[in-house]
Nucleic acid binder design. Structure first.
Lengths: 341, 341
DNA sequence: TTGAAAGCGCTAACAC
DNA sequence: GTGTTAGCGCTTTCAA
């Protein structure tokens, strides 16, 4: 494998010059630069991770993560993923901080992004809102040389470098796929979305309906509502619906709130349980799967979302020197039932 | 973070001596050694990956992998995993070779293990047979200083360092869990095991039956046989059984052969399809899931098996210097249906 | 515009 | 037994 030293010898220049050329740093004669570049190409030069990373220790990378995780334990696994990626790369000069916030208010998100920048982050990992002001902010950051990637929630129209997260539509389709597997009799569905303001939740719902329609599933939506990721609200809605509509035989829960739904089902339908399908694998959901109230849950590898986003942005900065495009990473869609929990 | 240099200064010795102590190399005064060790501990010394790996380039690690993959494309993903781990670590001095063999004959496995050793491998990743002679061989290798880990198939009574692979029992349980989800009517089952000689296949079957019994599933095993991972054989057995026993409404396929089973079902039961459940996610299985013949398949992250086994043995040797016990890695059990394929 | 040299942390060869 | 030194590949600073 060709090294900088090899190239320098071939080109009859010093290693410093080669380094300057390879990083497009100013102050190199055009002809020399061209010569070095062609030689590097000819020799198939690839920067060596070990050398690069050892030298990089002097100038560590600080990544700032914005996580609207207050009051939402879905994000626990993402944080575990961050920790793992940090662990593997801290010796190579990686540091990171997490800013925990609550909810999805544009102004508070904007403020906290600035907050991360003020703390001298070189790169940002954001779980934020697809909104014109945020897009503008991300684009400005990118233009100023700060790398930004999206985690869990994409903002495709911005200049963000890459997205690591779920394919919500597919998770909804998978949920419908399970339902079709389970029974062919007519489904009377209580449809509980998370929030109609959330792009991901809506996509999920679309995917669910899409697959039901595509398979000519015999179904009828008895009632629909939003849980707003609120347990109490989920409980009340479910309880009321189950009382009012005894025909309900299926519950779709598009986001948080399994604790409330589970409780309501236990109270109203302990013996004639409807099919209950939900998303993500937080503690409460696992509990209701274990006791047989929730039949299945669809997840999108949240650990991976944390792990790969941090790993990739680190590699983008520290190994590829911002010169290689990083592909989006769409997490695999998994189904969990009691037996493989 | 404390470095070797720091420790040397604190202890008033040279870095060379500290290095010797840290690696338990001979030729160090006992008292000096003790002193250095306590200081290292006090300062919380952890070897720095970047430094270690850069230096390690001089003495690369050669890992030899034994894979009985000839005629069995299940292993393709494992190989992809190897490639990924190699890619991430080649700059750190990792090299590897794969020895492809056919079948599970003890003598040929023994011979090929020797073959890998002859090619100067420093560490071995084996997918082999749980047999006294193999155990003896593995133990001898470990005693002679060659690291050995098991991939995909464990040999727990040997001195192998760790196991990376599936929990077959759990995969069988999960398969039964899907069946229980799908229907409550009596199951008339055609039970196709891979081979009764394979520990993993038997465990899988046990897990399947265990969960059926534990849930008081109403079932009856109409017929059982081995496919021996042979497509033609699987086809003939299935075809015959479907003709002879029209009551069959469920097929359990514990190993390779989905191509044969799928074909037979298409020919004999295109309109009144039994539930078909199988394992792994090879191309043919995916095809039969896509056209609706196979209902679901249970997998155990074969890519991860390759990726983590190579990654872990590399870290064991090159980062932890054989001094840290590596935990077994049991791959997660996943369910795939058409929608999340 | 370019070269020389030091240094990131660790290892190994050689010297004493 | 122990210290010294060179070097892994790359970056950066200082000097020219």
């Amino acid at each position: 494998m060709a090294t900088i030293k090899d190239i320098a010898e071939q080109a009859g220049v010093s290693r410093g010059t080669v380094d300057r050329v390879l990083h497009n740093r100013p102050g190199v004669n055009k002809e020399v630069s061209l010569k070095v570049k062609t030689i590097a190409k000819d020799m198939g030069y690839k920067t060596n991770r070990a050398g690069r990373l050892l030298a990089a220790k002097k100038k560590p990378l600080k990544v700032g993560c914005l996580l609207p995780d207050i009051g939402n334990n879905f994000f626990e696994s993402i944080i575990k993923g961050f920790e793992k990626a940090y662990d593997e790369n801290k010796d190579f000069g990686l540091t990171y901080i997490i800013l925990h916030i609550k909810g999805f208010e544009v102004l508070s998100h904007l403020k906290e992004i600035d907050n991360l920048v003020k703390q001298n982050c070189d790169a940002l990992l954001l779980t934020t809102i697809d909104h014109p002001l945020i897009i503008k902010k991300i684009n400005a950051l990118i233009d100023s040389g700060i790398s930004v990637a999206c985690v869990n929630t994409d903002i495709p129209k911005s200049k963000r470098l890459f997205y690591v997260g779920a394919d919500y539509f597919k998770s909804g389709q998978t949920c419908a796929g399970i339902l079709n597997l389970m029974t062919k009799t007519k489904r009377e569905i209580l449809l509980l979305n998370g929030s109609y303001k959330m792009f991901g939740h809506n996509e999920r719902l679309k995917g669910f309906i899409d697959t039901l329609d595509r398979n000519n599933t015999d179904y009828h939506i008895v009632e629909k509502d939003e849980t707003l990721d609120d347990i109490e609200r989920a409980y009340l809605i479910t309880k009321k619906a189950l009382i009012k509509y005894p025909e309900i035989n299926t519950i779709y829960l598009g986001a948080g709130g399994s604790d409330g739904v589970g409780k309501a089902v236990l109270e109203e339908r302990a013996d004639n349980k409807p099919i209950v399908l939900c998303f993500d694998k937080v503690k409460e959901t696992m509990h209701y799967i274990n006791i047989g109230i929730v039949d299945a849950t669809v997840t999108q590898a949240p650990f991976n979302q944390g792990y790969f986003s941090l790993k990739y942005i680190f590699e983008y900065e520290m190994i590829y020197n911002k010169k290689k495009k990083i592909d989006d990473y769409i997490c695999p869609t998994h189904i969990y039932i009691k037996e493989n929990l």
